[in-house]
């Protein structure tokens, strides 16, 4: 597994952990209410699990597994995908500040979208038939 995938996948495991902790607190609150402020975790639960866990894991595993080039950089423009990794995680973390920063969700989501676009650009040519260099 290349270094960048290790970062993607480890980050996604951390989001799985945090996201399910938040989910567990929410579910317990629905069962036996103990602190109404727990509901503030709801948007973070969704963001951390859908983007931080599912999407990020898919990106990390794709970067590792999809076909490589036999000439030049085997996994294409790696630097671009590093920027995608950084923007994705910055975006997720920025949305977590939505209760303090009114535009945090918008800014965070824009960072996530740019991350997605860079990832697509960085991977596009690797989705190719067997034998194509």
């Amino acid at each position: 597994m290349p270094k960048l995938s290790v970062w993607f996948v480890r980050a996604s495991l951390l989001y799985l952990l945090l996201g399910s902790l938040f989910g567990a607190l929410l579910l317990a609150q629905k069962g036996i209410p103990f602190h109404a402020a727990v509901w503030y975790l709801f948007p973070l639960h969704m963001e951390f699990l859908l983007v931080g866990w599912l999407i990020q894991l898919a990106m990390g595993v794709a970067f590792w597994i999809i076909p490589r080039f036999s000439q030049g950089s085997s996994r294409g423009p790696v630097g671009l995908v590093w920027v995608s990794f950084a923007l994705l995680n910055a975006g997720i973390l920025i949305t977590a500040f939505q209760y303090w920063l009114p535009d945090a969700v918008l800014i965070g989501r824009i960072a996530e979208v740019v991350a997605g676009i860079l990832f697509v650009i960085g991977s596009w040519r690797r989705v190719k038939p067997h034998g194509v260099m």
């Binding site: 495991l13 951390l14 799985l16 952990l17 399910s20 902790l21 989910g23 567990a24 607190l25 929410l26 579910l27 317990a28 629905k30 069962g31 036996i32």
Partner: peptide
């Protein structure tokens, strides 16, 4: 049903933790 949800929350969180 309330306590069942609390138990369910703990079990599901532990599942994620053990997986990680």
């Amino acid at each position: 049903s309330g306590w069942m949800l609390v138990l369910s929350a703990i079990l599901q969180f532990l599942s994620g933790l053990l997986f990680v």
